[in-house]
Design a protein around this nucleic acid. Structure first.
Lengths: 210, 210, 210, 210
DNA sequence: TATGAATGAGACTTCATTCAT
DNA sequence: AATGAATGAAGTCTCATTCAT
């Protein structure tokens, strides 16, 4: 029975996804031909279509894949005691993801996905949900911090969350374009921003004044 | 061979670029056909190729166009007395650019350009130079501020510049994807961050002022 | 290698032929994929190829099948006393075959076979032999009728046979295309034509003249 | 201005249609590749798609073409004084069409079209309308003949019309399959059938004879 | 015997670009 | 200068058939 095992099946799937990832990272979705993916995967044309219905399906599978991986990333920063420490932890996780050389292809494909999201509804959904996760996480941390009087109350949690997400998006772009993007320094600056969010002791002073 | 006037020539060029911009904004570079641009421009295939050597040439021309427009944007924030006010002014200018409904197409094409920059050296150069301008401006402002003891000296000017640029890049993405991106609130958060950069020795100053 | 019984073998064969018949009736030979037949038969690709060498083999097997079934049809009209009654009987048999709702698929496949006969020699042979049977039968009946002075002698047996066969072919086409083909009325018209072939009494007169 | 004239345009269209006709006649619609048509037309792939949107469009254009030609055929038999002569005229016209050696390809494609009509709604419409024309014409002739007491009133005009149409359909099939189809003899048999429809004024004749 | 994953030639169609007019 | 018909390489995808298991 050449009905291959689920493990083998998944292996083939990954093989194709990896080939597609590498090709898309190099040339973008629309400048990559199925032939490129086929050749890189080491399989045949037909085999690829046995695992993915179409090129778009492949693109969407990669989008979903990314979505799933990011969920894991975010989980790292959850459940930490101090909200501000939670934010720092999140920054650290993303900094690491940004530095991981094996993730270069994934970051590049991510950028192509951002552009694709503008016209492909399914990709957009995946992307938007992808940023929704860290956004919600940050909002929760900030609001908890504000409730506990650890974070200044004059900043909107929603807005600061979008700002932090934007920072990482911009970092991905700048890192992928240039060779001289200093991740450590930039991350340190982000750390400063987070520190700047800490409630200053005036709370105490105000109380004393009152 | 009725050689047309330079003015007419430039008009035709703009006509084509506008058509291309609209098409690219809708469908991206590689999902837009020359036929789409030709139809939208109201000219003929031949005419378009009279003004642009190739589709890539058109893409690069738009990238350069963007580059030129951004130079104008940045000039607004130059020459202001107070560096921190300069930063705020820059934020305001970009906020307005982000809100301008007529610029939606340009923002979308910009995103496609970010992806294209990954594989097209000429586009990448244009994009990188494009962010180099505000970056350098911010660096200059911050360094002047630090020199004047108006801005904290524990943050790296280079890094904070990249952070601010990244924020705007991320905002463009989030704005183009979603319908519920609150520009004003986010900008206000950016304002807070800038305020957080102010040197905190008010005591001394107040004393001296008093 | 558990060799299955001949009975099982024949069962499988029929199972496949039935699936093929249904698929071909719906979509024609060349718009039906082997995958369709495989799915409908409930067997596997390999199994189908165990019973039929190729798709063409399947097509030809169905043509032969039809050939065999028609032989049975024709036998009904044989051995009747009155030749004219024989013709009427033949008409009745074909009318019934035309009305049989279970035969719809077979009629449709038949039409596809007529087209296929134009390029597939084996199918053509099968089809031509298929019409040869009723044609010869009609010729025999008419010639016997003419010999017995029951049928007018001014008509060629060969020609009238082709006409009758043609009528049924056309009826199959018209029935399969349209929903408003009135079989009974048309058959009645054919009956009139056959009646019109009866020798009129002039024979007697001629005799008297002689 | 290389905008070619309507005449040239129509010429190219015909060039392609002729190539398609020849290919389809040889191998049927689905066994003919666009490459075959392209090669035979002497044009390029792109050029063919400049005149026809798709292969299906080509098939449908040929179906419409046939439809139009048959309209001309039928017009021949219209406006004749004697209805029975009209029927004979119609038979003669179709007999000629059946014999015309240049029409062999058209007849073969017609058969493929009959099969295609089973699954392609547009083709079916074209085919059904195509037989509707002669059918209506025959019905009109027969009814006029019956009204004028020239044709027997015991036969249904509708039914006999379908019979005559069926005869020609069957003839086309038999002619295209076999090399020994005797058109003249068969047509003569059809003539006999039509003669058999004449009202037999037995009363008058018998009286005169008597 | 039976399975179904795999093959790869070939199907249809698009599209950036050219060039005769 | 301007046109738009024409090109043909390359794109995505299908499918009859095979063969390791």
């Amino acid at each position: 029975m050449p009905k291959i095992s689920d493990k083998q099946r998944e292996g083939r799937r990954q093989q194709i996804l990896e080939a597609a990832l590498a090709c898309f990272a190099e040339n973008g979705f629309h400048q990559t031909g199925m032939a490129d993916i086929v050749k890189r995967s080491g399989l045949s044309h037909g085999a690829v279509y046995l695992y993915f219905q179409s090129k778009d399906d492949l693109i969407e599978a990669l989008a979903d894949d990314r979505h799933r991986r990011e969920a894991v990333l975010n989980s790292v920063a959850q459940g930490l005691g101090d909200p501000v420490e939670g934010l720092h932890a999140l920054v650290r996780v993303y900094a690491q993801w940004l530095t991981d050389s094996a993730g270069e292809a994934r970051r590049r494909v991510g950028i192509h996905g951002w552009a694709e999201a503008l016209r492909n509804r399914r990709v957009r959904t995946s992307v938007v949900e992808g940023i929704e996760m860290p956004r919600a996480l940050i909002v929760a941390l900030v609001e908890r911090g504000q409730h506990d009087r650890l974070i200044r109350r004059d900043i909107e949690a929603d807005a600061i969350a979008r700002v932090l997400v934007a920072i990482f998006q911009g970092f991905v772009l700048q890192k992928c374009w240039g060779e001289d993007f200093d991740v450590a320094a930039c991350m340190s600056a982000v750390g400063s921003i987070i520190e700047g969010m800490r409630a200053t002791k005036p709370d105490v002073k105000r109380r004393t004044r009152t």
